[in-house]
Design a protein around this nucleic acid. Sequence first.
DNA 1: TACATAATTGAAAGCGCTTTGGATGCCCCG
DNA 2: CGGGGCATCCAAAGCGCTTTCAATTATGTA
Lengths: 341, 341
Amino acid sequence: MNLKQLSELLGLSQTTVSRALNGYPEVNEATRERVLQAVKETGYRPNKAAQRLATGKAGSIGLVMPTAPGHQSDVHFGEFLAGLGEEAVRHDFHFVIMPADPDDEVAALRRLAISGNVDALFVAYMRGHDPRLPMLKSLSIPYVVHGRSFGSEPDYPYLDIDNEGAFYDATRLLLQLGHTRFALMNGPMHLDFAIRRKNGVVAALAERGLALEEDCVSHALMTDEQGLLAMEQFLQLPERPTAILCSSTVLALGAIRAVNQAGLRLGEDISLIAHDDVLPLLKPENFSVPLTTTRSSLRAAGARIAQRLIGTVKQAGPFPDQELWKTELIVRASTGPVPQI
Amino acid sequence: MNLKQLSELLGLSQTTVSRALNGYPEVNEATRERVLQAVKETGYRPNKAAQRLATGKAGSIGLVMPTAPGHQSDVHFGEFLAGLGEEAVRHDFHFVIMPADPDDEVAALRRLAISGNVDALFVAYMRGHDPRLPMLKSLSIPYVVHGRSFGSEPDYPYLDIDNEGAFYDATRLLLQLGHTRFALMNGPMHLDFAIRRKNGVVAALAERGLALEEDCVSHALMTDEQGLLAMEQFLQLPERPTAILCSSTVLALGAIRAVNQAGLRLGEDISLIAHDDVLPLLKPENFSVPLTTTRSSLRAAGARIAQRLIGTVKQAGPFPDQELWKTELIVRASTGPVPQI
DNA sequence: TACATAATTGAAAGCGCTTTGGATGCCCCG
DNA sequence: CGGGGCATCCAAAGCGCTTTCAATTATGTA
């Protein structure tokens, strides 16, 4: 059933039927009723491809999903998508997800943008000097970046959390508790948030004349396995750190295992603060020793970005181009005063 | 830059350019070269919407993502998507994800199918007598179901794991270890896999003349919180179960916390077997007491389903309509002989 | 009553691509 | 030397929708 058939059935022109369906005012209410009724009876649905071709609007936002046979799927991805979806469903928007080899992201994003398949793009996993940025600027499709790109002029639309501030605050708390030996379990070094978090730690330490030693920093994928390995390394250092900053609750999971296996007590021998993306799976308050965290909801960020993206496409008022969300520092039991030796 | 412009630039007809691009044989090799060269220089990309309208092929597979403000995002979803993506990227397929309120899934799926936006559908989270099945059958779009629907004639294309067999085997192992008091921590009761897993347990117990008491079964969302709660319930029963079957490693996470909090030792006082979907985040071998599991990779299932879906769309040979994957029973340290009292 | 104005409806022209059904020119063979 | 066969190429007709421009009818006013 297509528009033509439907309009013939009703004895109307395609024009009128189309207008009736799309809520244009210049159509008689009685006629509109008749059309709506017929739609209900026939189950007619407009062909999206045709609609898109005619209007240029796709009703969809596009994103690239890095994927490859060996590639760890990212727990955060699902949660973020849920946030996007929460908002998208209200506007009858959908997502076009282009899976792409992590090495091919720039090209994949480009293909997606030019395909005409999407109205707007969402971009994440930002790196320093991210090459996608100049490419996006040269295109004329709206986009919002989740995160930022260190080293690039911040003149692109983004939503980010204050990573530097979060880790600065966390470090200060630990300093106030008397800790002096710090370690940082970070995400992959090339990612923007990792750079900023490290800067936050370094800045807070510097205020006390302390430095962050190279062997007290790990950069790794955010899995619990890597957390375990990194913590094991830290625990073997001659000057074992007593304060750990951790870029994810997932890393913390492994780290805590290492702490336990070493016979140490979390919150007493070792203090740990992790960044919490509010993954439903891993609630810091549910850890056997509840975790002190810097918190910012990934899901909320997703919803907000969807709102901006969709709003822009629908030309619903201007949105702030740059947003920087503060994180909350929530103190639980994994932090305590530095142990007396 | 569109086809028309490109062809004018080349002094060729749209027909020829289109053919050159799509690999048709009736075009001079020299001409094809010229076209390809021009494409490279101009950066021309065909408009997907137009292509789709003309061919009816979208190069995409569609899925519905249940989502709502309160709705827990499912850890398994991301992993499954990664599996789909792994295969899709090879064929330049993408996904169209329609977020939908969980109560609106049937309608959402229908909209998605009729939209012309997708070539094939993927369907999951099957329930008993699932209403989506008759709807899908009435449409003429290819689809593959992940899981099955208890109570419906199994004449639809699916890929499922042998849930009943998995839990039957797991239960038998525990029986052999001498356990007689069993409990089952299951997923939501209306979901197909939950029904089958329960059946598996019941069947194995029945062979020994044992029954599964009602208060030894929990049905809940598969989060660690629910795992904790369910286990706490079990531990308070007058005849405390010594053998626990668990539908997910996520549930197990919470369950083990409850076990520890009660001062019991996993693998000694309490034996536990969990089903492992091979989530990268939660490796059973990394639990403080490594978990005995029934294993089946969600990611592999995703990849296989994508393969079938894309293969069907591309008419690349016939695929088996029904596939039932066996699970592996992997014994680790969370199971042991029944404790002597 | 006559005419300007508002309310409805339609015909037809795209949107950018694929594909059918010819054309055109060239080579080869009888 | 004429026509069949082949290699190339093209004009134009859709695919199913939106939207411009124009036509028709109903309404109101002087």
